[in-house]
Amino acid sequence: MKPITPKNIIAISGSTRKNSTNHQLIKAIGELSKDIFEITTFEGLLDLPAFNPEESFENTPAKVLDFRTLLYTADGILICTPEYAHGVPGILKNAIDWTVSSAEFSNKPTVLITASTEGKYGHEALLETLKVIEAKNIEHLQLLIPFAKTKINAEGQITDEKTLEEIKKLILSFKHTINE
Rank of each mutant, 00 (worst) to 15 (best):
N107Y: 08
I26Q: 00
F42K: 09
H23I: 01
R68N: 13
G90T: 13
P3H: 02
E38F: 09
L170E: 01
L92R: 04
V64Y: 11
L70N: 06
F105Q: 03
S116E: 03
E124H: 12
D97Q: 10
E43N: 12
T177Y: 10
M1T: 09
L70C: 02
T73W: 08
E180T: 13
T163K: 07
E155M: 08
A50N: 07
E31S: 09
I79S: 02
I36S: 12
N8E: 14
N19W: 13
T5C: 07
L143E: 00
H123M: 04
I9H: 11
A28P: 10
E54L: 11
V88I: 15
T21H: 06
F51Y: 15
S20G: 14
A148W: 12
V88D: 00
K169M: 07
L127W: 11
S56T: 15
N52H: 09
P53K: 11
K120L: 02
S13Y: 09
K136A: 13
N52A: 10
S102A: 12
E104I: 05
K93S: 11
I10P: 00
V64T: 03
T69E: 15
L170F: 08
L144R: 02
I171P: 03
L144S: 00
K108P: 02
L126I: 03
E55T: 13
G44I: 00
G87F: 08
K151C: 06
V111D: 00
G156L: 15
H86I: 01
F57W: 10
G87A: 14
I171H: 06
A154I: 13
H176W: 11
T99V: 00
I145R: 04
V132D: 00
S173A: 14
T16Y: 04
A154L: 13
Q157T: 10
I152M: 00
F147W: 08
S15H: 12
I152E: 02
H123K: 08
K136Y: 14
S20I: 10
T117W: 12
I152T: 04
K2Q: 07
S102I: 12
G156K: 15
A11E: 11
N137V: 03
G44D: 06
T21Y: 04
G87T: 14
M1W: 07
C80E: 01
I167R: 01
E134S: 09
I138T: 09
N107D: 08
K27G: 09
